[in-house]
Design a protein around this nucleic acid. Structure first.
Lengths: 108, 108
DNA sequence: ATATCATATAAACATTCGCTTATATATCAC
DNA sequence: GTGATATATAAGCGAATGTTTATATGATAT
């Protein structure tokens, strides 16, 4: 059942708090790495590694602009991934709960 | 973000091939442990442990009848769990691909 | 009661995972 | 150029995961 195996692999990406939060944030707009670092309060390499996994499965796209790399959601509207993300809180709620409304891509 | 943490925990249950297959089979009807063992070709304790995890998160129900324990799906129709399971193959397809159409609860 | 079948639990183990620190690469400002 | 900022990669580590084997529990049949 290769189909189930593939789904399980993608769901594994969704089954981590940090990655599920990143994807939920990206529902609203693109974020650069340094913003995610400030919001999630984990190290920059940790964020980069999560983004790499998400990118390797085609769930996010990157766009380099200047010294920043912006990541955006890249999920088919009709996929089960999108179906799951429809249930996660939106970025405004997340930022408000985490008290990070002020974070912008001008990071340091 | 406790909501995201809870979702991630439940998605973790879906992100394993064996468990996702079990849940997909249960979309159609209840199965007993010994059937799942034959279908999945892993040890009986492995199946039991997966079922225990699924039960602990309320995703399956058990029903003891005689020496058999039957498990059935216990997922809210409107949840994201159900949304995911709508994308997995149905039991007939799974059994056919795995060549296990013959398996019944009279196991040995 | 004994033997058999179905299931659950415990222990052990290899693998995977997510994190950190350290380091490398690349861009920008001066 | 040099220094500061943004990001990626590598190595190391402890925790979690999924499996197996061994054992326990419980129901059924004889």
């Amino acid at each position: 059942m290769e189909q189930i195996r593939e789904m399980a692999d993608k769901l594994k990406l969704l089954s981590d708090y940090t990655r599920l939060t990143i994807l939920s944030l990206l529902k609203d707009r693109e974020f650069c790495v340094c913003e995610l670092v400030e919001i999630l309060e984990i190290s920059q390499p940790a964020v980069s590694q999560h983004l790499r996994k998400l990118k390797s499965q085609g769930m996010v796209k990157e766009s380099k602009r200047g010294q920043w790399v912006y990541y955006s959601l890249h999920v088919d509207d009709k996929s089960y991934i999108k179906a799951v993300l429809d249930y996660t809180p939106d970025s405004k709620t997340i930022l408000s709960v985490l008290n990070k409304q002020h974070v912008t891509s001008v990071c340091k």
